[in-house]
């Protein structure tokens, strides 16, 4: 998932006594793992939270094309170029399924797009970091898609049917993305001195932004508590981050690369690694729009949308003319 700090109702989770009969019946279905479908009754807060979360995820897929698109024209072999194209195409496709899932909740793709372009809605902080050398294509697949999978696998069981089904499709493709990323890293780490330097540089820059993808610790967040109760969210941010670190450290060791964290150490007692937290000040700066690429990313999306207006208008006008001609002929 590429959603962070998704706001819920802003209130605590209601106790059974506080719920209306409809709300209680709804919560019973969630607790019994029965999927909620678009036409079912749902609390307004559930609907709004899902729109925020699915919308943010969809926007992340769309903006996420840009850092990888940055290297498609410089991919070093035909095969790498083809793989990267296939991956970016998948991402645009993920955006499409997710917008469709959001549409079942009564919000149109155009409305969500307007919210992205105006900056009212966010996308994942990770895509506000630059891709500076070819190994970044490896690091993005390995770490960024790796972190996304960590979040998305449990979301296949999320309570809202269309979202869960979209996740099942997306997860299949994401695991291919992660493997191709790791494959790039492997080539680079086993390559020339210059390639090793690129690989380590990419890891150094991507590590902490990847840890930020899970969002800040949510142990005190009312939003997270409500999302967990509604099974919009399945695990806490800290659980997922720990799982990600535990999975990734041996992979980095296998590559012969060094994770840029002096405090990284196996902890027998907890059965996981101790590790440094990312710089949360930096995270909040990025979320507020001050990341290295925020302005450029949003400008690129706005330009694509504005420059494309005549195309959308033209095709719409043609469809209308054709329909009118058909009616006239009948």
């Amino acid at each position: 998932m590429y959603a962070q700090m998704v706001k819920s109702t802003g209130e605590g989770v209601k106790s059974r006594d506080e719920m209306s009969p409809e709300e209680a019946a709804f919560q019973d279905r969630i607790d019994q793992d029965i999927k909620i479908e678009p036409k079912d009754w749902m609390p307004e807060g559930y609907r709004k939270t899902l729109i925020r979360q699915i919308g943010q995820h969809a926007h992340s897929e769309i903006v996420g094309q840009l850092p990888e698109g940055n290297w498609i024209t410089r991919a070093p072999t035909l095969e790498r170029k083809a793989i990267l194209l296939a991956k970016v195409q998948d991402e645009a496709g993920h955006g499409l399924y997710l917008y469709c899932a959001a549409e079942t909740l009564g919000v149109s793709r155009d409305e969500l797009t307007e919210d992205l372009l105006s900056g009212r809605m966010k996308y994942s902080s990770i895509f506000n970091y630059p891709t500076l050398n070819w190994a970044d294509m490896g690091a993005v697949g390995w770490l960024v898609d790796g972190a996304a999978i960590m979040n998305q696998v449990p979301l296949q069981r999320t309570s809202f049917g269309p979202y869960s089904r979209a996740m099942i499709r997306i997860c299949k493709e994401e695991s291919f993305h992660q493997r191709q990323g790791y494959d790039i890293m492997m080539k680079m780490a086993q390559g020339t001195e210059a390639q090793k330097k690129m690989a380590q540089d990419a890891l150094n820059r991507t590590w902490y932004p990847a840890l930020m993808m899970f969002g800040p610790s949510d142990k005190d967040s009312v939003h997270s508590a409500q999302s967990l109760a509604w099974k919009i969210k399945i695990d806490t941010n800290d659980e997922l981050r720990q799982r990600f670190v535990d999975q990734t450290v041996p992979q980095a060791e296998y590559l012969g690369l060094t994770i840029p964290d002096e405090n990284l150490k196996w902890n027998d007692e907890k059965g996981g690694y101790d590790f440094s937290q990312p710089d949360w000040e930096e995270f909040f700066d990025v979320v507020r729009g001050n990341g290295p690429c925020n302005v450029d990313r949003l400008a690129a999306r706005n330009k694509a949308w504005d420059d494309g207006a005549w195309v959308r208008d033209g095709l719409l006008a043609h469809a209308e003319k054709r329909a009118a001609r058909k009616t006239a002929a009948e």
Binding site: I62, I72, K81, L85, V88, G308, V311
Partner: peptide
């Protein structure tokens, strides 16, 4: 065609352009 990646007028066109580029590179 691959230079369009992420900059098309509408999402379906991003997909179609990437797909065309991918076929041509193949």
């Amino acid at each position: 065609v691959s230079e369009w990646c992420g900059h098309a007028p509408v999402l379906e066109e991003d997909i179609a352009l990437a797909n065309t580029a991918l076929d041509l590179i193949g």
